[in-house]
Structures are given as structure tokens and as C-alpha cells.
């Protein structure tokens, strides 16, 4: 389309002026995060974007056509970067949306008094930039979701450390509640460490588990059963008085599992099973 070509040519010709206006809008926008982005950096990003934009518009005004891919890729990159830096969605979308004003000015200057043509072209640009704005938000949201799921994963791994207490004895201090996703991570970590250390006994300490209902008890029993299949024994320690009461009230059967009130008690049992003893050294005065 000839009109598109002309428009692209116009944008390219007046790139400096448009860039200046656009920068002014971005800088004056309340949503600019001066703490997070430098003006010089923003100018460079904007300049590059404008170049891609004018190239794409020379081919088509349909943002779903392949000629817009470089523009979208560049927007996606900006969006992902801003999401990671902690920009809000509107702060992120302002980048492309604030290009409206300079472009509208340009259209107005070109078309002049022809009202119908002006309206048509403004509508075309509005649609175009809104599409790009929405795309920015979509990418933003996706990358935030990515960040959240990564953090969840990290949190899960952080919250399930497996420590070696003694040769062949591991301890797993559980903190927080146990759902099925976390149980799988807990089991994986514990069993992997059993393989690595050749442990024969694993102590699961539930002092930090706020409540033990039937579901949590079930997850605990699964962990014990899986550990046993690997060839190691489990002891559950850190059973607080209330938890002992709820377990019995709920009718949860922990009969096949060795349970101890404290980690110290469990450790003593573990040592005894391995045939080791710990005693205070005789005073050497």
C-alpha cells in the first residue's frame, strides 16, 4: 500500500522530532521509574524501537502480520526486562502507549483539514498501538508468572534442607505444612541424599509443622514408605503434645512408624541401631 510506504517514509524522515516528543511524554509520565531506568538508556531503546516500527508500518498496519515480528520481539524483550526489574503493568505499557501522542501529531500535520481521513488514520493508529500495548501487558504477565513459579520452586527447595547428623544418619527438619507438591520435593531431596550418603536412618523432624491432619499424616507415611523401599529406615521426631492428641483423635495409624518426642531422642535411637554410643569424655583434670 502506497499510503503505508509514505507514512513510513514520513516517520523515518522526522524520526528525531518524533523521538524528542515521545521522550518528553515518557519522561513527564507519572509512571516513569527514574529509579529503575536511565534516560539515556530509554532514549536508545526508544530510538531502536521507532526504527523497527517505521519499517513494519511500511509493509502493513496489521500487527499480526509477519512484518511486525521484529517490533513484537523488541517489545517482548522490553516487557520481560521491566517485569524482572519490578515495573508495574501500566508502567510497562506506558512505553508503547505514549507513542500515540507524537504519532497523532504527525498524522494531524500531514492530513490537515480532511476530517474523514484524519479520523480514519487516527483510528488505524489507535488500534495498532492498543494492540501493541495489550501485547506488552500479555508478555509482562507471562514473565511475571514465570518469576512466580520459579520462586515457588526455589522456596520449596529452600524449605526442605536435608542435613547429615552422623555417618549414615540424615535429618530432615520440616518447616511449614505438607501438601502433595511439597511432599514430592521433600521425598526427592531426602531419597537423593540417602543415595548420595549411603544413609541407613533418616530422621524426619516435624517440630516446625503447625498442624498434622489426616492428609499431612498420609504424606508423612508416604515419605516413610518410599525411604524404606530404598533400604533406609525412618524415625519421626518432634511430635508436640497437641499433635499427638490430634493424631489419635483423627484415628491416624502411625503404629508401624517409630516416633519420638524430640530430635535428640530420635538421634539416640539411630545411634543405638548403628551400634554407636555417645558419652561424655572422662574429665581430664
Amino acid at each position: 500500500m502506497g499510503q503505508n510506504m509514505q507514512l513510513a517514509e514520513e516517520i523515518r524522515k522526522r524520526q528525531d522530532a518524533i523521538l524528542k516528543d515521545w521522550m518528553a511524554y515518557q519522561v513527564s509520565a507519572l509512571t516513569l521509574r527514574r529509579d529503575l531506568v536511565k534516560e539515556s538508556e530509554l532514549r536508545e531503546t526508544s530510538r531502536q524501537f521507532l526504527e523497527l516500527f517505521s519499517e513494519a508500518i511500511g509493509v502493513s498496519t496489521d500487527t499480526s502480520s509477519p512484518s511486525w515480528k521484529p517490533v513484537k520481539d523488541s517489545l517482548a524483550e522490553i516487557s520481560q526486562k521491566r517485569a524482572a526489574q519490578g515495573f508495574s503493568p501500566s508502567e510497562t505499557a506506558t512505553f508503547v502507549l505514549s507513542l500515540k501522542q507524537p504519532l497523532f501529531d504527525l498524522v494531524q500535520q500531514r492530513v490537515g483539514q480532511d476530517g474523514k481521513r484524519l479520523a480514519d488514520m487516527l483510528w488505524e493508529f489507535t488500534k495498532l498501538l492498543d494492540h501493541l500495548g495489550l501485547y506488552t501487558t500479555e508478555v509482562y504477565q507471562e514473565s511475571r508468572e514465570g518469576v512466580i513459579s520459579r520462586q515457588q520452586q526455589e522456596l520449596m527447595e529452600l524449605s526442605t534442607p536435608v542435613v547429615q547428623l552422623w555417618d549414615e544418619v540424615l535429618a530432615l527438619p520440616l518447616i511449614g505444612t505438607l501438601d502433595s507438591a511439597r511432599t514430592q520435593v521433600v521425598m526427592e531431596n531426602l531419597l537423593q541424599r540417602v543415595v548420595e550418603t549411603g544413609a541407613r536412618i533418616a530422621i524426619i523432624d516435624i517440630t516446625g509443622v503447625p498442624t498434622v491432619d489426616t492428609l499431612v499424616a498420609q504424606h508423612l507415611m508416604k515419605t516413610v514408605a518410599a525411604t524404606r523401599l530404598m533400604g533406609a529406615d525412618c524415625i519421626i521426631s518432634g511430635i508436640r503434645p497437641q499433635i499427638a492428641q490430634t493424631i489419635v483423635h483423627l484415628g491416624v495409624n502411625l503404629n508401624d512408624i517409630v516416633t519420638k518426642a524430640t530430635l535428640a531422642d530420635a538421634f539416640e535411637v539411630a545411634l543405638a541401631r548403628l551400634g554407636a554410643t555417645v558419652s561424655k569424655a572422662a574429665s581430664t583434670s
Binding site: E188, L191, Q192, V195, A225, A226, R228, L229, M230, G231
Partner: peptide, 18 residues
């Protein structure tokens, strides 16, 4: 039974075959 892999142990328990 010796050398069961961790992933196999976890799966067996979930399957209901402890």
C-alpha cells in the same frame, strides 16, 4: 530388594504399592 531408584520408590508408594 536392593538399589531401588528414588523416582521408582516415590512412584510405587503413590501407586499404592509400598
Amino acid at each position: 530388594v536392593v538399589g531401588m531408584r528414588p523416582a521408582v520408590a516415590i512412584t510405587l508408594v503413590e501407586l499404592g504399592l509400598a
